[in-house]
């Protein structure tokens, strides 16, 4: 039971906290912390043969997820003058219980899923899967566009977890690409949220559906 498992447990806990959290600011901070924690994963996974590439990936993802994204998101909250509540479709308790259910499902799938490559821990695949499921759940169950950005980030963290924990070299490149995508995504979302807010005085996605025709 080493540091990698410790990090994975922290990832699970941050996901659960995010599901139960009612505050926007707290949610952003939790996601930032999750990004920071995950930054250490590539270093630990490759501690025997550490290369510059790994250090760069760790530092890059740490800085972007732990620093730049929260800054962008907090700026969006400030500019759009959002209230501090999360405004869920699904209540916090139900979300939390659904999270535990998703964790169980992730563990079940993790044992069933044939992984062709060697991974650093037997918890890696389930935890990555759980992050993806939590991200999807957050996107589905929250009203605010900002929360959907957060859900998207959690989803990406799941992909990152898997990529960083695989003991093969190629996925690093993919990971960098994904990070870039997400970066652009968050950036654009930040601007869009700001502009939608200026046009419509709110950013509830359920009211966006009025634009469909």
């Amino acid at each position: 039971m080493g540091w990698i498992e410790f990090i994975l447990v922290l990832v699970v806990l941050t996901n659960l906290k995010l599901l139960a959290s009612s505050r926007l600011g707290a949610s952003i901070r939790v996601v930032a912390r999750q990004g920071l924690i995950l930054g250490a994963l590539p270093l630990l996974a490759h501690q025997d043969a550490l290369s510059l590439q790994h250090v760069a990936l760790a530092a890059g993802s740490g800085v972007i997820k732990g620093g730049v994204f929260p800054w962008l998101l907090f700026r969006a909250v400030r500019e759009a003058e959002l209230t501090r509540e999360v405004e869920p479709y699904v209540g916090y308790l139900t979300s939390l219980l659904a999270g535990v259910g998703a964790l169980g499902a992730a563990f079940w799938m993790g044992t069933r899923l044939p992984v062709p490559v060697e991974v650093v821990s037997r918890w890696l695949v389930p935890v990555a899967m759980f992050s993806i499921l939590s991200g999807l759940f957050l996107i589905i169950s929250r009203k605010r566009a900002l929360n959907q950005v957060l859900g998207f980030l959690v989803l990406e963290n799941g992909v990152f977890t898997f990529g960083a924990g695989v003991l093969v070299e190629t996925p690093q490149l993919v990971e960098v690409g994904v990070l870039l995508d997400v970066f652009v995504g968050v950036f654009v979302m930040g601007i869009i949220i700001f502009h939608i807010n200026r046009e419509f005085d709110h950013i509830d996605t359920d009211q966006l559906s009025a634009l469909k025709d």
Partner: peptide, 20 residues
């Protein structure tokens, strides 16, 4: 308060799943 207690249950259930 319910969130705190359900959270405690969720932590314990997470521990159970991790211990499988």
């Amino acid at each position: 308060v319910p969130q705190l207690l359900v959270g405690a249950g969720a932590l314990a259930a997470t521990a159970f799943l991790l211990g499988l």
